[in-house]
Each structure stands twice: as C-alpha cells, then as structure tokens.
Write a protein that binds this DNA or RNA. Structure first.
Ligand SMILES: [Mn+2]
Ligand SMILES: [Mn+2]
Ligand SMILES: [Zn+2]
Ligand SMILES: [Zn+2]
Lengths: 161, 161
DNA sequence: TCCAAACTTAGAAGCATTCCAAATAAGAGA
DNA sequence: TCTCTTATTTGGAATGCTTCTAAGTTTGGA
C-alpha cells in the first residue's frame, strides 16, 4: 500500500497513458489502474483478477491481461517477469529502482538505490534502443525464507546444542 | 561467439559448479555448458536444444531444462526472462552487466556499463537477501527494428517525397 | 563384475497466457 | 438525452512453454 499522494500520481499517469493512446477508460481499466497504483507488491495478472473480482463480478482474466499488455506497450507499467512462480509480475512504479524477488515466497520488493537513476539515460543514449521498460531484478532468497530453510534443514538444532 | 579465452573461463566455471554440487558431468551436460559458454546471444532452452540435437541425436528437451535449472539454482547461469517471445533466455555471463532485449526480433544483447558492478554488492549487503542471480534488462526496440517499423508505417515515403 | 543411485528420454500433463466470436458498453455527435 | 459506431469485455477454447512421469540407461563405487 503506497501513500495516497504516490497512489494518486501513479493512477493519473496510467489513466493518462491510456487516454492519450486513444483507448477508452472503461470501468474495468480504471479498476485495474487503481489497483496497480495502490499495490506496492508487484502483482501478477491473477493477483489483480482475484483482488478485483469480488467488487467487479463480471471481470474477466482476459481483460486483466489485455489491460496490462496495453499499459506495458505504452511503457506505463513494467513487466518484471516471474519470481519463482511462473507468472509475470507487474510494476506500476516506473521510476528507476531495483526489485528483489524471492524465489521461495514469490514476493517482490523494492530496493532504493540512487545510482540506478542514471543507468537508463546512459543506455538510452548510447545504445540507440527505444526503451519501453526495465526489468531490474535480483532474485534469490529473502531473509525470512533463508531462516525458514535453515530451520527446515536442522529442525531440532536449538534443542540439541 | 565469445573469444576462446572467455569461452574457456565460462565453461570451466559451469562445469565446476556442477561438480562441486555433486552432480555428474554427463555428455549432455558438458555439451550444454559448452554451448552456453560459446554463445553470446542469450539462448532459450529451445535454441540450445535445436543447436545441439544434430550432434547429440538422443538429446531431450527435458534434459536441457533440467540442466539449465541446475545451473540457475547454483547461481552459475542467470535466467533473464522472456524477450517478447514467451521463452526464458539464459545468460552464462554472470558478471554484472546490462542486457538489452528487443521485443520485436527477440534478440538480447549485452551493454557494457561499469557502474553496474557496484550495485550487486550494495544490494547484497544492505538487503539481507541471498542473491542467486540478476535480471538486469531493458526491453524495447533495437535500432534495426525501429527502422523496420518506420518503413512499414510509410512504405513509399522515400518515393513520394 | 555388480549394484544402487543418478541421469536421460519421450511423451503426457500442467498452467500461464493468448485467441476467438458473441455480447456489451463507451463516447462522439445529433 | 438518444443513437450509432466501434472498441471493449467476456468465457471458453486453444496455444505453447515448462514440468512431470515412468521406464530405460549410464555412472562410479564396492
Ligand atoms: Mn518495483
Ligand atoms: Mn548478458
Ligand atoms: Zn521469501
Ligand atoms: Zn529488434
């Protein structure tokens, strides 16, 4: 859950992107954009679908995918790829930052790192690529999952020593 | 195609990783490691399978996936994710660098950027994550594909002006 | 040489994502 | 506000990458 200000800023940006592309602002698209703007945890299409389905019973998974594709195609959302699950995670925060993906609990969190801001500009200018999105991800095991794995390996270590 | 020295260094590293993990160095695994070490273009499992099948007719796609999984699990190879195709691309060069993926021709190339070297260390120390791999990718359109798209949009532009 | 465990293989299965055709709704203009 | 065109939504089918499975093969140690 982001702060209301950040939320608002992101939501506006997403809606503007759709509008400027000549796409219609349907109820479903608005809901998806709003959800993406609030969520800080890099949801998958399924996550979005499950979260919105109760309030929008007619919502289809295909619509979620269509909307995400549109937003990614417009560069308004980044497709980070999978996190040990086999589902693509999406990031509505397109400001330069590092993402940390845990391949055990499949969570993706942000890691602030000022240096990253420069990279994209340098690459854009020097490569000749038309950059649509970034996928700056380190994957591995989050602290919690490391601990869980250790305890799994030595279940009675504390008692036996 | 990398230089022979680099190739050799990467191949040794991959084989060592398998060996140290107690895994057997089968003919198939050696072939896959050798191919990964030579190839500079971030192949998919299918790419590897197609390239090696002629010389190793018994090779199975499952073995390619198994070997890649093992190497990724050991942190010896990075799984970059897809590039507009729906197949995961793999990178045997785990030195810190940026990858540029074109979502039209599905090619992935390296982009040298010294700054990147620092990032991983900082993240590793500050986050508490056990980092297994990196996915530093900018996706977009390569120069060639941008040109191709422009000509597609205005096929007779040159003639009509 | 013999054996147990690891590995490979072909094909089936799983599942995220895409495709499709019919039903619906957005939004421009009257 | 009402109408009309057309983009969009929807559920289900289809696609295709990846994983699983069970049987056969290979490996390396005893
Ligand atoms: Mn993020
Ligand atoms: Mn690379
Ligand atoms: Zn975790
Ligand atoms: Zn291209």
């Amino acid at each position: 859950m982001r702060t209301p200000e950040v939320q608002q800023r992101i939501e506006s940006r997403l809606l503007s992107a759709l509008r400027q592309a000549g796409l219609r602002l349907t109820l479903q698209r608005r809901a998806i954009c709003r959800f993406l703007a609030q969520s800080e945890d890099h949801p998958t299409a399924q996550d979005i679908y499950r979260a919105l389905k109760p309030q929008y019973p007619s919502l289809s998974l295909a619509t979620v995918y269509n909307t995400l594709d549109a937003l990614v195609r417009l560069g308004a959302v980044h497709r980070l790829g999978e996190a040990g699950d086999d589902a693509a995670h999406y990031d509505a925060d397109i400001s330069p930052h590092i993402n940390l993906a845990c391949i055990r609990c499949h969570r993706v969190v942000d890691f602030p790192l000022p240096d990253v801001a420069r990279l994209e500009d340098v690459v854009r200018q020097a490569s000749g690529y038309r950059i649509l999105g970034a996928r700056m991800v380190y994957y591995g095991l989050c602290p919690e999952c490391q601990q869980a794995l250790n305890q799994e390996a030595q279940p009675t270590a504390a008692a036996s020593e």
